[in-house]
Design a protein around this nucleic acid. Sequence first.
RNA 1: GCGCCCGUAGCUCAGCUGGAUAGAGCGUCGGACUUCGAAUCCGCAGGUCACAGGUUCGAAUCCUGUCGGGCGUACCA
Length: 584
Amino acid sequence: MTRNKELWIELVGAALEQLVKDKGLDAGSFAPEQLQTEVPPNPELGDLAFPMFPFAKVFRSAPPAIAEAVVELLPEEHRSAVTTAGGYLNIRFNRAGLVQETLKAVQEQGEAYGSSKAGAGVRVMIEFSCPNTNKPLHLGHLRNDALGESTARILSFAGADVRKVNLINDRGVHICKSMLAYLKFGNGATPESSGLKSDHFVGDYYVRYNQWAAEDPSAEPAAKEMLRAWEQGDPETLELWKLMNKWAIDGIWETYRRTHVSFDAVYYESETYLLGKAEVLKGLASGAFYQDPDNSVWADLSDIDLDKKVLLRSDGTSLYLTQDIGTAITRHNDWPFDRMVYVVASEQIYHFKVLFHVIKKLGHDWAANLHHLSYGMVNLPEGKMKSREGTVVDADKLLDELTELAAGEIREKAREDAVGDVRATAEKIALGALHYYLLQTTPNKDMIFNPEASLAFSGNTGPYLQYTGARISSMLAKAQAQGYRLDAEFDAGELNLDSEWDLVRRIAEFPSLVAAAAENYNPSALTGYLYELAKSFSGYYHDVPVLQAGTEEQRAARIALCVAVRRTLANGLQLIGVPFLESM
RNA sequence: GCGCCCGUAGCUCAGCUGGAUAGAGCGUCGGACUUCGAAUCCGCAGGUCACAGGUUCGAAUCCUGUCGGGCGUACCA
C-alpha cells in the first residue's frame, strides 16, 4: 500500500515537473514536497487522490485543467488507473496485487503483524499508576493504568525497548492517617478477621480517620506527630507501617492482576524521597539555583517565563519536586533511557514543566527527552467525584459489577456451555468494556464516565469488538471442522467485492496506525480504528457467505480474508487491553 | 489576575500533517433471524463545528479576540 503511494507520488511529481518545463516556468516554481495526497471520500473515486488546487496560481490555470494536463504527461502504462474529478487527480490501485500482498503479510507475520522496527533500540521508560498505600484504586487509577499499560504495549509493538515502572507513594502524612485510625479504632482486626480485601481494609481506616478529624481537632497534630516518629525510625511506627503497607500493596496488586497490568520495576517513595536533596545542593554549588537568607533553595524559572520555585525548605527538607528530581536521575542511572514518559493527570502539567526544566538546569541534556503524558479528569454525569461525598468509583467494585452484568448476559443468551468458564469469560468481557471505554477518549481530554453506558455491551464498545472476534473464530472453527485449512493458498483475484477491498484496505493500514499511536502516545487512535474494522467486517459477515461461497476458490480466498481480519483484530485488541475471546 | 486545556447532533465521543456532501455510538422511530453466533445488520430523523474577525484557491482543523467550562498558579502530594 505504502509502496503504491510512493510510486504515485513519484509519477505525479515527475509529471508536474515536466509541466513546469513545458510551460517554460522557473524550475523552482514546483517542488515535489508541495505535492499533497489524501484518501478520496468515496471508494468509487479511487484509492489515492492528489488535489491540484495549490498549483492553480503557478500554472495560471484552473485545477481541473491541470489535472487533465498531468494525466497526459503520465507514462502510458499507468494512465488507465487515473481519473480526474473536479480539481482532483484520483488513482485506483491494482487491488488484486495489494490484496495478495496484504493477506500474505498477515499470514506470514501472524502475531507480529502491525509491529515494526521503527523504534528499534530506543529505550523508553514509562511510569504509571503510582498509587497511595492508604486506599484502594479508584476509577481515576483505572484510566491511568489503561493508558500506561496500553501505551507501553504500543511502544513495544512499534519496536521500542520498554520498561514499565511504578512509584508507590507509601509515605507521608496521609499514610499515617490510616495508621492512626487503625491504632485508635482497629482493635487488632486484620483483613482476614474482617473478611475484607486488604487494600479496602486499609482504606476504611483512612475514611475513619477523616470522620474522626472532622470532630476532633487533636487528630491532625497526632498525624503529624506520627509522621515525625516515622521519619525518626521509631520501631513501633515502622512495624505498623510495614504491616499496613503490605496489606494495601497486596490488595492493589490483586487489582493489577485482574486488569492485566504489570510492571518491570517498582520504586517506593519511602526509598527515594531523600534522593533529590544532594542533586539540588550540587545545583546550588554550580550556580544553577540560589539560596535565600532563610536557607531555602530556589530555582529561578524566569527564563521560561515562570516564577520561581522552592527546591529545599528552609529547614533543609525535600519537597515533592525534589524527590522527582532525584528519582529521575536515579532511574536514568539505573537504566539509561532515550525517552521517559510520565503518565500523570493533567493537574500536574505545571509540575512537570518545572521538573523537566530544573533537570535541564542541572546540566542533564536528556531532560529534553522527558515527556508528560497528561490525561484529563474522569468525571461522573453528576459532576466531579468527591471522596467526601462518597462518589468516588471504586475500581474493584466497578469490575465486580461489570463482571456480574456480563455473566448475566451470558446466561440470558444461554451461552454457558459454549463459553465453558462463565466467570472467567465474564471477567474478560468486563475488562474489555472498561478498557475500551477508558481508552476511547483522547487522553488529553476530560471525560465523563457514565456507569450505565460503560455497562452497555452493544454499539461502539469493547464487547462489540470481542463479539466480532468471537464470531469470526466460531466460523473459522467450523471451517476447520469441515476440513478447510486456514493457511491454504488462495487467489486474491477472487476477492473483488467493494466490501472485501474495504477490509483489505483497513488491514493494510494497521501497521501505520500502530506507528502513529506510538508516536503520539495515543491508544485512542487504535480504538477508533478497531471499531471501524469490526464494523466493516460485521457488514461483510452479514451480507456475504464465506463457508457457503459459490466456488472452492472463492471460499478459500474469503477464509483467508477472515483469518487476516481476525489476526488484525486480535493484535489490535491486545494493544488496548481488551482480551480477545474465541467464544463469549 | 496570570498560565495551560477543552467547547462538534438531545447525550457520550471521532474527525490524520488545512481539502471533495462534518462522522460514529447511545437514545427515538421503522425494518431484517428455515441461512457462517441477532451481544448483529439495514434505514429515517437529528449540526450556525460556542461566537466574531483573520490567513488561504479551500478552515471543525492554523492565527487573534470574546464568551462558557475545567485545571493549575503552596516551604502539599
